[in-house]
Design a protein around this nucleic acid. Structure first.
Lengths: 207, 207
DNA sequence: TTCGATTTTAAACAATTGTTTAAAATAAGT
DNA sequence: ACTTATTTTAAACAATTGTTTAAAATCGAA
């Protein structure tokens, strides 16, 4: 099945999986090495330390999210359609990688220094012209005048949180995983309708 | 300043603070003991192990949230007013304890067994009659017909996530903490308006 | 005061941690 | 084939981990 990847890449893949499920301090370098089938020392040979490796994985995970946004924002469609598409893509992506949001948030809070955006996330978003498109839509009265930070928060809250909170909600409501996933499908529709209706009040809702 | 609490309580307080900021495996028993000013062995004397102590703290943290909900739900006011009040109380509470949501989610995902609801959270919510009140409001056409799980998700997503994501959003948008807190104030209004408008479409919005 | 229980401590425990060192195995270049 | 890099390993490292043990200190009641 698996291609014969380079050792370096195999380590990254294993580290990603282990870090995602257990967090930085919740796992050991030996655990990662074992899951690759190599010696512990190779970890420090390719990456200098456990911390460096973690930063790499975290940065890549963050990049995945930004990439998805950039992909949608770069298209030549209306801001409203971008909103719909982003929600759809995000739910689709997160269903495949449900551990990602919690990993990112927990990871960011574990790092002492807030050295983010060496990857220039903001710049990549700007290049899509999404901010100008919003500004224009707001001026034309097509979009509610809400600060972009708040728009981002609305979007992330309603897409990311429902994925993160599976254990919490299932615990409180005594739900089985399958039941929650059904709720999640329904929730995607709800979130889409609510956000579109709030951000673009003048639009007739789609089917 | 500090009252002379029992050693047991002092340990709990310190453990809560340390666990909150560093997570279970991100801190050591000695670190907790040191911050109380006692010997490490006392930790295992009062609580049997680091894990037991953590479960205790986590359970208490969860209880705090349920308590807030129960408090609001128990009042003799309309379901719409309860919604408004819950959002308000939640933002107020979370501004004082911003580490709580992430701690709970990360904590739940670290625990192997999903042994939640030994505190009977669901039962306590039921006792308030909130579910019947919603059911009735929905039958009367006052409230949109949305499953209670989804209502819970909507509420938690929009209240908890903005607090959790401070580092992420500040990192991406290069915001200072102060600026984010301003956005948060604005966001509370946005969330209130959006949720009320979505869940109670026939209502005229308040000032 | 004295005796017994409770609380607190110092010390040690075995196990595990991230990392380094030096040697071995493999690959590459000539 | 021989020599030099590169990759991989086994072993050891000092430090730290959660927990336990046994002795000391403190307290309460008789």
């Amino acid at each position: 099945m698996k291609k014969d990847l380079s050792t370096e890449q195999k380590i990254k893949d294993a580290a990603r999986k282990v870090f995602m499920s257990k967090g930085f301090s919740g796992c050991t370098t030996r655990e990662i090495a074992k899951s690759v089938g190599i010696n512990v020392a190779l970890l420090n040979y390719y990456f200098r330390s456990k911390g460096k490796l973690f930063e790499l994985i975290l940065e890549a995970a963050l990049s995945d999210f930004i990439d998805a946004m950039v992909d949608v924002f770069s298209r030549d469609i209306s801001i409203e359609d971008k909103t719909r598409m982003l929600i759809e893509k995000e739910f689709e992506f997160l269903r495949k990688h449900p551990e990602l949001p919690l990993f990112i948030h927990a990871g960011l809070n574990q790092e002492s220094d807030g050295e983010l955006d060496q990857s220039n996330f903001l710049g990549r978003l700007h290049e899509t012209g999404i901010f100008e498109q919003c500004e224009q839509a707001q001026q034309e009265g097509k979009m509610r005048k809400v600060n972009m930070i708040n728009v981002t928060l609305l979007f992330m809250s309603n897409c990311h949180f429902p994925i993160m909170s599976k254990k919490l909600v299932c615990g409180i409501y005594q739900l089985k995983d399958k039941d929650y996933d059904e709720r999640l499908t329904e929730h995607q529709k709800i979130v889409t309708e609510m956000l579109i209706h709030y951000l673009f009040p003048n639009t007739k809702q789609h089917a």
